[in-house]
Design a protein around this nucleic acid. Structure first.
Lengths: 212, 212
DNA sequence: CCATGAAATGAGAGGTGCTATCAAAAGAAT
DNA sequence: ATTCTTTTGATAGCACCTCTCATTTCATGG
């Protein structure tokens, strides 16, 4: 049913003509991430120190902090935001904007799971277990929400910094965040896209009313 | 001398017959809070260390941590939650539950502003300025949200751990959190209760549609 | 190919939040 | 006044994170 795979998930940019420096930077960035993931899988989040990460990634602790401002960021930083926004602006202007939203968030989830399903699960798991990660995630999503808010404001013709838009987007962020939490707490049994659809229904129409 | 007179359960203050220990605990708790507030007003949040707080509150740093698990908690911990829940359960069963919600949240805001308006503003200010405080606040509100979720589930007859209820409550939390942010960012010009009403309208009915 | 300039790295020191332990002090109970 | 319990303070210690500075590594122009 959810077999609608959009053809090209993430445009992997600029393989060619990158200076040696840039390539190395990408490499160490990935090395730090990988090291962090495996260490966390081995010993858990809290037990994993920056020093250990640095050691396994074969860099100095200083370098780790140069690449990631906080320990939580190593786990959950992603740069989907600009792509997401661009994708949203690409949608036809006559499409109901809530549909555009649905499409684009679905796209993001699809891209992430396609790229590395295990990491997606690990992150959701950490989201449930580690408050600091959860907090950082909400912060990060808030930023994304602000961006979405601008786009939504454009579409609806409302003021950019309108209170209503801001409330809606933050409300959206909250609801979306809950998806991951619920998913992880129920052992990843549900289909993420299904949950997303149900969540957006709730956000759009409120709770399926059994009474007023 | 300590004759046990029939206790009169006044809702608000357990003023009477508290042991010296309990009274002292409340006192130091307040002392730590006050010290923190004044210090923050003087030098800002980050520049204020636990050591300084301890010194001004005339306790040891250890004691500060005994009373508040984290520095952020000193600023924003409140114990409205149980009252809020009780108040919600007191509402007539035939009242539309969204109205009950509106009433009870309005009640909470009213109580807080009545108790100490300046502190309410300071906290909103910190919410905007200090990411750690903002994060901690969202965490705290999430817990409150869970409780509200249970109550809402009762009212709507939905399952307690229903995905839809959880999404709705977290969405609610997000929207409510935005109220404080907007309020502070716009120099506290708006009326909080007004903002609350508008926010709940958005959460209930979605964005006021100018098109689809 | 080498010299110069720029960027990334590593090493070290230091500050702060926070935890854990344990002995001393203060309140409660007999 | 005595025990008993709770609360406190002092100390040590760990981990996250910042800052600075010398060293290494890449880029560039002769």
């Amino acid at each position: 049913m959810t077999r609608m795979t959009p053809a090209r998930p993430v445009p992997l940019p600029e393989r060619p003509q990158l200076g040696l420096r840039e390539r190395k930077k990408i490499k160490t960035r990935m090395a730090i991430r990988e090291a962090t993931y495996t260490l966390i899988k081995e010993q858990g989040y809290d037990a994993t120190t920056i020093e250990q990460i640095a050691e396994r990634a074969e860099v100095s602790p200083s370098t780790v902090f140069r690449y990631f401002p906080t320990k939580e960021d190593i786990v959950l930083t992603d740069e989907y935001d600009p792509i997401l926004l661009a994708e949203l602006r690409k949608r036809p202007a006559d499409e109901p904007w809530m549909e555009s939203l649905r499409y684009v968030v679905r796209l993001a989830i699809g891209a992430a799971t396609e790229e590395d399903p295990e990491v997606v699960r690990l992150r959701s798991h950490l989201l449930v277990q580690v408050p600091a990660v959860r907090s950082r995630m909400l912060e990060s999503m808030s930023v994304t929400g602000r961006m979405l808010g601008e786009a939504i404001a454009e579409r609806t013709g409302m003021a950019q910094d309108s209170f209503e838009v801001r409330v809606f987007t933050m409300s959206l962020i909250g609801g979306l965040a809950e998806i991951s939490l619920y998913w992880a707490e129920h052992d990843f049994k549900d289909d993420l896209q299904d949950l997303l659809d149900r969540a957006l229904d709730v956000i759009e129409h409120g709770l399926p009313a059994k009474n007023t």
